[in-house]
Simulated scan of single mutants.
Amino acid sequence: METENLPVVLLHGIRVSGTMWGPLAERLRERHRVVAPDLPGHGRRRGERFTMDGAVDAVAEAVDGLGGRALVAGLSLGGFVGIAAAARHPGRVAGLVAMGCTTRPEGFGRAVYRTAGRLAGRWPAYADAAGALAFRRALPGPAAGAVLAGGLSSAAFPQAVEAVCAFDPVAALAAYPGPVWLANGTRDPFRSHERAFLRACRDGRLVLWPGRGHLGALHDPALPARLVLDAAALARDARARDADVRA
């Protein structure tokens, strides 16, 4: 039977880096091994081209570095990447926590999303400066400091937007057999299709954080900490029960 706590892989949002998870990782490391890799085009991988395939490869590499099986948790872009990684590598992803990503860009929203990406990619220095100001205003000091510690990468914004627009997260969730936690702040505009995402999951549950917006998991790291700790324990125990049944 598995008794060791599951390792955890944390996936960051668009144009930021793995440092954004610093306050959460600090809480989790009391019980778990934790890594927060930089996705292509972001952080220490700034200058690389972002693709969904490349991002999924980065997740697989991070999981392998932790022993080959882990809980994967991501916010926004990181949530979409986590969904893609779970569908492609179900043997590596013991459980999935996808935060702030239960929407499918379509119609007017898709056009706005793409326009924002193109503008950020055309003037990345200005977009980085504006983004840094927005994060400092939206988040408490330690959280903003963690987000900005790895630098911003607006040059990767249009590539990431196109990758998300071309991705079918509902189909990917339907392909993944493991446990899934979909988490949203009730004021997050990126929760518009959460019920369709939930129905697609074979073993899914929806967690709502009252009064929180898209950055709620960063604003109050206690929220994702409780969720990830519970999810890791449940995913570990489910894996152990499955192993006992096969034995």
Rank of each mutant, 00 (worst) to 15 (best):
R212Y: 13
G82P: 07
A86Y: 00
A73S: 02
D237P: 07
A70Y: 10
A73K: 01
V72I: 02
V207T: 12
A155K: 14
R246K: 10
V180A: 11
F167E: 09
L223R: 15
F157H: 15
E194Y: 13
N184I: 05
H89I: 02
P177N: 08
A62E: 03
G91N: 02
T51I: 00
G54N: 07
G43E: 00
M52R: 05
R27P: 02
G41I: 03
L24Q: 09
A238P: 07
Y126S: 15
G100A: 14
A183V: 04
G109P: 03
E162W: 12
R202M: 11
E2F: 11
W21C: 04
G216Y: 08
I14L: 15
L77R: 11
H12F: 02
S154P: 01
L11H: 11
R33V: 07
S153G: 09
E2L: 14
R236L: 11
S153L: 05
R88A: 07
R49W: 07
A111M: 13
A149V: 03
A143Y: 00
E61D: 15
T19Y: 07
L229D: 13
A87E: 04
P37F: 13
A175D: 07
G91C: 07
G78I: 04
A25K: 10
A240G: 00
E106H: 14
F135W: 14
A155S: 13
A200P: 04
P177L: 11
P90G: 11
P158S: 04
F50S: 01
T102Q: 15
D128I: 09
S76F: 06
A155E: 15
P90Y: 12
G91T: 01
R45T: 10
V35F: 06
T103D: 11
P210T: 07
L71M: 04
W21L: 00
G121T: 05
S76M: 09
A134M: 11
T19S: 10
A87I: 02
G117M: 09
W181S: 12
P221W: 10
P140R: 14
A60D: 08
L71H: 02
V8E: 06
V164N: 01
V147P: 05
R118H: 12
R195V: 12
L152Y: 11
A84C: 12
A146I: 01
T115C: 12
